[in-house]
Write a protein that binds this DNA or RNA. Sequence first.
DNA 1: TTAGTATATAATAATTTAATTATATAAGTA
DNA 2: TACTTATATAATTAAATTATTATATACTAA
Lengths: 115, 115
Amino acid sequence: MSVDRKLDMQEVSQILKLLGDKTRLTMMKLLQSHDCCVCEFVAIFNMSQPGISQHLRKLKDASLVKETRRGQWIFYSLNRDHDYALLIDDLLNYLPDQNERFIELEAQGLRISCD
Amino acid sequence: MSVDRKLDMQEVSQILKLLGDKTRLTMMKLLQSHDCCVCEFVAIFNMSQPGISQHLRKLKDASLVKETRRGQWIFYSLNRDHDYALLIDDLLNYLPDQNERFIELEAQGLRISCD
DNA sequence: TTAGTATATAATAATTTAATTATATAAGTA
DNA sequence: TACTTATATAATTAAATTATTATATACTAA
């Protein structure tokens, strides 16, 4: 009981630490509305491809996101089965919509749609 | 507008970074139910007094908590007027109750009540 | 098979963070 | 005033974090 309680605080603070980075927080907000592949994130954020991959790995290691290969691309999506999925969703709902970023991508012809 | 959006993401991620530390997150949860002075935090957490003070300073610098001197003690309380007070309160409501910690304090005669 | 594209991993460097000890400040009390 | 208690600040150190470049892996297509 006491141990469980501490584990919970530990786990939540770990999740908040991951979301306490602007790039990862924005990634999560983007994923709330659209699955996204690595190269799209690279186009959206001003960051190297390995930088993007490492952020995604942290999110994946914490089971916050899932990855699926579709052809040559690997798409990331929110893990809506996560133990704290409700908390995370609530939290993301406070954030301003980031769809403008997808619109910009589309305008540059960089949006990947894999059907 | 675009600038505001970015500021928001920046500010929220900064807050989550602060809450992404187990000590500070637990402090905030404790403060949700009781104001608390520094020496109580020192008794609750296994950490030096300067360590506690520095966590509190970070929370105060971000306006997440307020301080009030009462006699020889300085009490900390949640700043319920913070721009993101709703988000923070929602978030804290997901966390397990930490009142047991106050009960333990009381049992050790370390609870400060300043009336 | 070879070349090109997408992604991950390794190595590394710069920065930030979180803790400690030592010390200063401020209030309370004999 | 001097002593004690409560708290803050400074200096320092160890560890964690975030980014980069270089390289490896995996799929696609010619």
